[in-house]
C-alpha cells in the first residue's frame, strides 16, 4: 500500500487557490474540501466540472473564484470529458493531472454511465465525488445517495429506498484507488489526494459533505455533523488499493471501541431525518452494528 506524508494543520500550505467572496453558501462543506483539496493538487491540474454547487461556487462569467483551469461540461459526461482532456494531455506530452469533480447526482445518477466507462478503461484521472446526499444546487431534491428516510423536496415524507453505496459500486470496477473522505476531515482528504497523485489509473474519492441548507442544520455545525456521522459508524473512511480495503484513522479507531454512539445522536442534529420512525432508526442502528461486527472480524483478525 502506498503511503503519503502525514500533513497536519501546522505544515499545511498557506497557498490559497480559491478566492473569498465566492457564491458558496455560508458554512458550505464543499468549500472546505475545495479549498484544502487544491492545496494538495497544486497548480498543474485541469478540472472538469458538471453542473453542481461547484459550478456556481467557481464563479459566474467573467469572474472565476478559483485559480485553476476548469472545463465546465454537461451533467452526464464528466468522466468522458475528463477522458478527453487526459487524452489531449497525453498527446501533448504533459503530466498535468486531470481532476473530475462532481456531486452525487452527477456521479451516482446521471453521470454513472460515463464514470463506469472511464473506470473500465482505467483512465488516468482523479475523480472526486462530493456527496451531499441530494441535489442541493437545484434546491434539495433526492439523489441516488440520499439516505433512506431522508426528507427532500421530492421525498416530502422521507425517501423510501436505501441510498446507493457508490464507492462500493466503483470498487467493483477494480480501479487503481478508491477512498472515502469527509468534509470534516480535510487533512485526511488532502493526504489521500497526495497519494492519488502518485498512482496511475483511475483514482476515485468519495466524500461525505455536510450541507447546512440541505441537511437542515445550523451553518456552524457542518464540521461537527460530519464527524458525528463517522463517530457513530454510519459513514466510514477507508481506502481500497489493489482490491484491499483498509480503514482510515478516524474510522479505524472505532474498532477498539466496545460500543459506538447511537446513530440517533447524528440523526437528531439534522431536520432532514425528522420523519424517521423509531423502528426505522432501530433498523438503521442494526445495520450499523452488523457492519462493525463484520469489520471487527475482517480487520481485527489480521
Amino acid at each position: 500500500m502506498t503511503t503519503a506524508a502525514k500533513t497536519n494543520v501546522l505544515n499545511l500550505s498557506t497557498e490559497e487557490f480559491v478566492h473569498p467572496g465566492n457564491r458558496a453558501c455560508s458554512g458550505c462543506g464543499l468549500s472546505i474540501l475545495y479549498r484544502i483539496g487544491l492545496k494538495a493538487l497544486g497548480r498543474d491540474c485541469i478540472f472538469v466540472v458538471p453542473p453542481s454547487c461547484l459550478t456556481v461556487m467557481q464563479g459566474l462569467f467573467p469572474i472565476a473564484a478559483s485559480q485553476m483551469p476548469i472545463l465546465n461540461g454537461t451533467f452526464a459526461s464528466t468522466a468522458a470529458i475528463a477522458t478527453g482532456v487526459r487524452a489531449a494531455m497525453k498527446r501533448r506530452g504533459k503530466q498535468t493531472q486531470v481532476v473530475a469533480w462532481a456531486g452525487d447526482g452527477g456521479t451516482a445518477d446521471i453521470g454513472i454511465q460515463a464514470l463506469s466507462g472511464a473506470l473500465e478503461r482505467n483512465e488516468d484521472i482523479i475523480y472526486i465525488c462530493y456527496d451531499n446526499e441530494a441535489y442541493m444546487n437545484t434546491g434539495v431534491q433526492r439523489s441516488g445517495t440520499t439516505p433512506q428516510g431522508g426528507l427532500t423536496t421530492t421525498t416530502p415524507y422521507g425517501k423510501k429506498e436505501q441510498g446507493k453505496n457508490l464507492p462500493e459500486i466503483v470498487a467493483a470496477h477494480n480501479p487503481a484507488y478508491v477512498a472515502t473522505c469527509s468534509a470534516s476531515y480535510p487533512l485526511d482528504f488532502h493526504d489521500k489526494l497526495l497519494k492519488a497523485k502518485q498512482i496511475s489509473g483511475l483514482k476515485y474519492i468519495h466524500i461525505q459533505t455536510p450541507c447546512p441548507p440541505g441537511w437542515g442544520c445550523e451553518e456552524r455545525m457542518t464540521v461537527k455533523i460530519g464527524k458525528a456521522a463517522i463517530d457513530c459508524g454510519l459513514f466510514d473512511l477507508y481506502e481500497i488499493e489493489d482490491g484491499k480495503k483498509q480503514l482510515s484513522e478516524p474510522s479505524r479507531k472505532l474498532l477498539k471501541k466496545a460500543k459506538l454512539p447511537s446513530v440517533q445522536e447524528y440523526l437528531s442534529m439534522q431536520t432532514r431525518f425528522k420523519a424517521l420512525s423509531d423502528e426505522q432508526i432501530a433498523v438503521m442502528q442494526e445495520r450499523i452494528d452488523q457492519k462493525w461486527a463484520d469489520y471487527r472480524q475482517e480487520f481485527c483478525a489480521e
Binding site: 472545463l71 461540461g73 468522458a80 477522458t83 487526459r86 489531449a88 498527446r91 454511465q113 460515463a114
Partner: peptide, 27 residues
C-alpha cells in the same frame, strides 16, 4: 498516430472530443 477512445455512448463520444478539443488537440 492518435488516441482511440472506445467510449460507452455517443454522449460520451462527443464528451471526450469536447475535453480533448478544449485541451488543445484535434478531435
Amino acid at each position: 498516430d492518435a488516441e482511440y477512445v472506445a467510449v460507452e455512448s455517443e454522449h460520451s463520444a462527443l464528451g471526450v472530443c469536447i475535453g480533448a478539443a478544449s485541451a488543445g488537440v484535434r478531435a
